[in-house]
Design a protein around this nucleic acid. Sequence first.
DNA 1: GCTTGACTTCGAGCGCGCTTTAAGTTGTAC
DNA 2: GTACAACTTAAAGCGCGCTCGAAGTCAAGC
Lengths: 128, 128
Amino acid sequence: MTAHTLRYYERVGLIQPVGRARNGHRRYSEADEAWLHFLHCMRATSMPIREMQRYAELRELGDATSLERRKILEDHQAGIAGQIVELQQAHALLTHKIANYKMIEERIRITHPVVAEPEVDCELTPVS
Amino acid sequence: MTAHTLRYYERVGLIQPVGRARNGHRRYSEADEAWLHFLHCMRATSMPIREMQRYAELRELGDATSLERRKILEDHQAGIAGQIVELQQAHALLTHKIANYKMIEERIRITHPVVAEPEVDCELTPVS
DNA sequence: GCTTGACTTCGAGCGCGCTTTAAGTTGTAC
DNA sequence: GTACAACTTAAAGCGCGCTCGAAGTCAAGC
């Protein structure tokens, strides 16, 4: 996560204005880091920024929004489950295709065998 | 997959110019459909268009490109495996967070119980 | 004959999520 | 004191993958 990305997340309201050192530089607390880690996980699993904004907004409002926030997470979790299935299917498909390529390569290897080059001076110069 | 997307894929070389009916309309053969299905699977698992273009290009060149094509697929499969792990981790994280929200909601339910409204005319009107 | 609708081409437009640029301030090392 | 690096701001730019719009052609149905 680059500094630029952190600025961006702050700009769009994914993170609240964070603490500053005396010189004005940002100082991220452990709580900030935990929240950023969570954001990172959600992004890495394709949650749209908009949805993360909505979640962050509710989070600011406190426990009363628990239900709605839970719903967001449950929906996203269901999405993740679907993604996993798709990925597993693609993985299986690729296993098949890769096996097929290996067969093709084997066929080529048999049809056009690599003839050994005459290796006249082979082993005449010992490795020191 | 919309018609627009099919045109786009043809434009960028992911599919070869496809057969046409007498009126000029495209007719997709079963082979076309199989290829499109494959493209769809790769896209659904985040293979970039560029890489699909490279693969399609090699495919046009025939069996001699088998090795390189296999490498592309193997790399992508490895990427998929990584994605699956990330998704599973996020799924687990969400399970925890969701459980936590349920606890919070339970706490609220106990602290602010919903007082039963007086239900005076309850059951006086039988359901027909 | 005329409308409707599904296709055709080509080019422009767009939403997302950053990413880069430019210009300015501050603290540290030599 | 002065170079340098690391931060600051605000705004503009960009790559990706579509997505849409405009204008035209064709075939079928009323």
